[in-house]
Design a protein around this nucleic acid. Structure first.
Lengths: 150, 150
DNA sequence: GCAAAGTGCTTGATGTTGTCAATGTTTCTA
DNA sequence: TAGAAACATTGACAACATCAAGCACTTTGC
């Protein structure tokens, strides 16, 4: 049951989404620069962010979290391992499963990615304190609505 | 003179940006589904959106708009041409330059992309009218601040 | 004018994803 | 225990990403 708002030509949500996109696209060069500087590809950085320090994660779980194919993660983790950022361990309870754990180097780089990529772009950073707080609250409500169970 | 808010561990802008990301990542499957359904890759769709109907655009301009390398656009436009969505024409004022124009089929597909990808994801669509309007207004101010000249 | 420098687009080499089908191993289930 | 399912990997292929030449054409400076 999808609910279309057919009466309005373009709703506020519509326009908001469009602006959302615009900010994301405009921020692309900054993202690329950060990744290049850290010597990571975008997906490698995403994988790093999904892997929490000290928390082993299954290949499948990581694939699901990154919304991509299982076979895809194999290659990404291969490269993380080659760069000594993560290691694979066979799971003891199920020998089909392999868990991934960040190395020390991986944890360090992860927090660097977090620090750098976590910085909001100009557009957001330049907002007034009131606007920024309001934006945060609205987005928090948005996320909560769509995913009551996280 | 850049102004860091060092007193706060994580500012509102910071948190807002984090939520921003979260919504984008969560929306990835929908984007992929739309593109797959329309038989386009993500970059092809982006190119289509950059090309306005009846407005020829230079390869370089398109590359700049998409924030990617010139040589990259060559391949993307090759595929758009192969799919009869766009056509290259040599520019008359400068024979090095090639302009790209959407075909009829390209214009039709473009508006379909616009219609489908323009739909906000659950998170945004489920906001109250007040929140959606406030979100739109804040993002509009954000875009305006960062790019006063557009 | 003309050589030199610069511009616009393309090509080629190489690496990282994306899809999808198939395989090997291990576990679950009937 | 035989068959089905699950997990990770592999292989084949297409799409992009970067970067370094290359070619055709313009512009510049003498």
């Amino acid at each position: 049951m999808t609910c279309y708002v057919r009466t309005m030509p373009t709703s506020a949500a519509h326009e908001a989404w469009s602006l959302f996109w615009r900010i994301f696209v405009a921020d692309k060069p900054r993202r690329l620069a950060v990744m290049a500087e850290l010597g990571l590809s975008f997906q490698q950085a995403m994988a790093l962010m999904h892997l929490e320090p000290g928390e082993p994660m299954t290949m499948s779980t990581l694939a699901a979290g990154m919304h991509c194919d299982n076979s895809n993660v194999t290659g990404i983790v291969d490269r993380l391992e080659a760069a000594d950022l993560a290691r694979r361990h066979p799971a003891e309870h199920d020998r089909r499963v392999k868990t991934i754990v960040l190395t020390e180097k991986g944890e360090a780089l992860r927090s660097e990615v977090q620090r750098r990529a976590g910085q909001p772009p100009q557009e957001i950073a330049a907002l007034s304190l009131e606007d920024a707080a309001a934006l945060r609250d609205i987005l928090a409500r948005a996320v909560e609505h769509a995913a009551p169970l996280t």
